[in-house]
Simulated scan of single mutants.
Amino acid sequence: MHRPLSLLTAVLVAVLPAVAACGSDTAEPTPTATPTSVAATPDTAQIDQVKAGSFVIGFRGAFPGLAAGRDDAAITAIFTETCAEIRAGDPEDEVLAALSDRLAAGGAEATDAETQAVYQMVAVMCSGR
């Protein structure tokens, strides 16, 4: 029952030090191809691609059922869209509702606990710059 949260904690412990090491203020982000499923806006364009890549790895490891049938671009879109809403200051309940819809779009429905765990994962990874 608590497996997703335990996995999330393990993933965050493993991934966040790498993300922090890669996200130094002196490094300029290298322009990369933007996922075609996400419209390029100032908020989504500024999201560090290393963090997005780390999210994809963490999401696949912690939520294999939700990741099934999704390519990396689709999982990156979950991260970038949710992160943009968090950075815009949208109310948490609205972000959670939108995230729940995004997670369901892959065919599998996320439980409330899984949605909350993914939200926390995104919030931690997209905080700061």
Rank of each mutant, 00 (worst) to 15 (best):
T44M: 06
G53T: 05
G69Q: 13
G53K: 06
P42S: 09
A40E: 15
T44K: 07
A40K: 14
I47K: 06
D72R: 14
F55G: 04
T41E: 13
Q46F: 03
A62G: 12
S54Y: 09
A68N: 11
G58R: 04
Q46E: 13
V50E: 03
I57S: 12
A45F: 00
V50A: 06
Q46K: 14
D43C: 00
A52D: 06
A52Q: 10
G69N: 13
A68M: 10
A68C: 02
D71H: 12
P42L: 06
T44H: 09
A40D: 10
F59L: 02
A40V: 15
S54T: 04
A40Y: 00
G65V: 04
P42W: 03
P64G: 05
A62E: 02
T41M: 11
T41C: 09
Q46V: 05
P64A: 05
D72P: 05
G65M: 07
G53C: 02
R60V: 12
I57C: 00
A62H: 02
L66I: 12
V50F: 07
G53I: 01
D48V: 02
L66M: 13
Q49I: 02
I47H: 07
A68D: 13
G53D: 14
V50L: 05
D71R: 12
A62L: 03
G53Q: 05
D72W: 04
G61W: 13
F59M: 04
A40H: 00
R70E: 08
A67R: 04
A40R: 15
F63Y: 14
T44Q: 08
F55W: 06
T44F: 07
V50W: 01
L66K: 10
V56T: 15
P64C: 05
P64Q: 08
A62I: 01
Q46N: 07
R60D: 01
T41W: 11
I47Y: 03
F59G: 01
G58A: 14
D72Y: 06
A45V: 14
P42V: 06
T41Y: 11
D72K: 14
Q46R: 15
G53F: 00
Q49D: 08
T41I: 10
A68L: 13
R60H: 00
D72Q: 15
G53E: 04
D71T: 07
T41H: 09
R70H: 13
L66H: 11
A45M: 08
R60E: 08
S54N: 08
I57W: 10
S54D: 09
P64V: 05
D72T: 15
K51I: 01
V56E: 12
D72L: 04
A45Q: 13
G53S: 10
A62V: 01
R70P: 12
D72C: 07
K51E: 03
S54V: 00
F63A: 02
D72N: 15
D72A: 15
G69F: 14
T44G: 05
A68E: 14
K51C: 07
